[in-house]
Amino acid sequence: MYSQGLIGAKTETNEDEAFLAAFQARIDAEEKIEPNDPMPEGYRRTLIRQIGQHAHSEIVGMLPEGNWITRAPSLRRKAALLAKVQDEGGHGLYLYSAAETLGVSREQMTEELLAGKAKYSSIFNYPTLTWADIGAIGWLVDGAAIMNQIPLCRCSYGPYARAMIRVCKEESFHQRQGYEIMMTLAQGTPGQKEMAQDALNRWWWPSLMMFGPHDSDSQHGDQSMRWKIKRFTNDELRQKFVDATVPQGEYLGLTFPDPELKWNDERGAYDFGAIDWDEFWRVVKGGGPMNRERLAARRKAWDDGAWVREAALAHAEKRRARREATKLAAE
């Protein structure tokens, strides 16, 4: 799930004009770009950055939900949550693979993440405090992610688009899983309903922030749109998300934590209040409630796993050497 508006990529490029024009013509003709094709350096860098951020988001995104796997309240919910968090790991894997076609390794990307140099979706820097958060994440966070990701299935870069098709196909159960949890809570005891409302209150604004800065403040948006890495602007996607989600929340009998949220007949869309961008940037830059713990958890998994990865390589080498020796002996 979980791409977020791209943050901080440099899209400038040094190739000559004829090269850039020819490349743009391919893009405009809706031709897909494949790994070994000539491409502007800026295009490659933007993709590495965006796919990397997307992959990191999946991997870090395993943590807040993983936090509730051992506490899931029924065996059915436990199996569904475990399968969902596992899917997120899979999506990270597909995305790292897509980025690897651009000449960067998974290890390099991981090290960037662990060094705090790479970004990931800011939403995962909020804590999951109750079981209802698992419902709210599935419903809102996966819902927002789907809005972002469906257009990425048509991204101009072939491996990214193919990975996204697979991700979107697998992900169709995630949002439904979350909504079903919310519905069960909303129709449950007063305590459960309160839990659901509290989760909606806490996750609503961060979900809207997932689409990234306003179009007017987004430095790289235009170039990404021209290169068809992106198909809709941050604000367009955010509006689509609000319009789709508000009726779902009303069906649950829950209220949104935004007094300015109301249907605008003229626009045929919901108006909504101002997003707290100070909070957004604070969380992106490391000041969210869970930034430190998320990175620490990833670092610990990576460091604790180092001896396992080394052993796997050492064993593979021994196996190879033994096979060679047997072959030589047979000759």
Partner: peptide, 9 residues
């Protein structure tokens, strides 16, 4: 309990 904390993806 390992989910999300394994030695490799």
């Amino acid at each position: 309990e390992w989910c999300g904390h394994a030695p490799m993806l």
